[in-house]
Amino acid sequence: MNIDRLNSKILKCLQENARQSNAEIGRQVGITSPAVSERIKKMEDLGVIEGYKTIVSPFEIGYQLRAIITLRAFMGKLKPFLEKVKTYDEVINCYRITGDENIVMEVVLKNQKHLENFIDQLIVYGESKTQIALSHVVKQKAVKSL
């Protein structure tokens, strides 16, 4: 889909606050509420807009640690891991990557013991490395239209 200037502005508004009304978005971009609605629907239908969600603070609901874990899978263990990782509640993001490691995961954990137990589950799939995240530098940054 060709993202024109108006659609780009609408996407920016939605990424800043997906709960704002079409009327409010229309005021910001200079078109009517029905025109905003029509453009949003078209972008949803074409897969430009993949969905809407609520972002929850893991720390406010009891998680004390956020970590980045990389995994270098053992021979024959990557495909089984790709299915298993989907079942881990701790994993909030997971990417299959190029380079020495195969996987990068972002995980949230209750405490150090929880981290130790989680790493123990990974041992059968490969060699892991863990870094504890101290803070967000860039968080949920909006994707800019080309």
Rank of each mutant, 00 (worst) to 15 (best):
M1P: 00
I3M: 07
D4A: 05
R5N: 12
L6A: 06
L6P: 00
L6I: 15
L6G: 00
L6T: 15
S8Y: 03
S8T: 10
I10Q: 03
I10D: 02
L11I: 12
L11P: 01
K12A: 06
L14F: 09
Q15K: 09
E16K: 13
N17K: 13
N17H: 09
N17M: 11
A18S: 15
R19D: 11
S21L: 06
S21E: 08
S21G: 09
N22G: 10
N22C: 08
N22T: 11
N22D: 14
N22K: 00
A23Y: 13
A23K: 14
A23S: 13
E24T: 13
E24M: 11
E24K: 14
I25S: 00
I25F: 01
G26P: 03
R27P: 00
R27L: 10
Q28P: 00
Q28I: 06
Q28N: 11
V29Q: 03
V29G: 01
G30Q: 06
P34W: 08
A35P: 01
A35C: 04
E38T: 13
E38I: 12
K41H: 07
K41R: 15
K42W: 01
K42A: 14
M43W: 09
M43G: 05
E44C: 06
E44V: 14
E44H: 02
E44A: 01
G47D: 09
I49S: 05
I49Y: 04
E50C: 04
E50W: 02
E50Q: 13
E50Y: 03
K53V: 07
T54W: 10
T54P: 00
V56L: 15
S57W: 09
P58W: 05
E60P: 00
E60C: 00
I61F: 03
G62D: 09
G62H: 08
G62I: 11
Y63P: 08
Q64T: 08
Q64M: 11
L65N: 08
L65R: 14
R66Q: 11
R66I: 10
I68G: 02
L71K: 02
L71C: 02
L71M: 06
L71D: 01
R72K: 15
A73Y: 04
A73M: 07
F74Y: 15
F74V: 01
G76D: 05
K77P: 04
K79R: 15
K79H: 13
K79M: 12
K79S: 13
P80N: 12
F81W: 10
E83T: 11
K84S: 07
K84F: 04
T87R: 12
T87Q: 14
Y88T: 12
Y88H: 12
D89A: 10
D89Y: 09
E90A: 14
V91F: 06
N93V: 12
N93P: 00
Y95W: 15
R96G: 01
R96E: 13
I97K: 10
T98S: 10
E101D: 14
E101S: 07
N102F: 01
N102W: 02
V104D: 06
V104A: 10
M105Y: 03
E106F: 01
V107W: 05
V108E: 04
L109E: 10
L109P: 04
K110Q: 11
K110W: 06
N111T: 10
K113Y: 07
K113C: 00
L115Y: 08
N117K: 14
F118S: 08
F118K: 12
D120Y: 11
Q121R: 15
L122P: 02
I123K: 14
I123A: 09
V124P: 01
G126C: 07
G126M: 08
S128G: 03
K129A: 04
T130F: 02
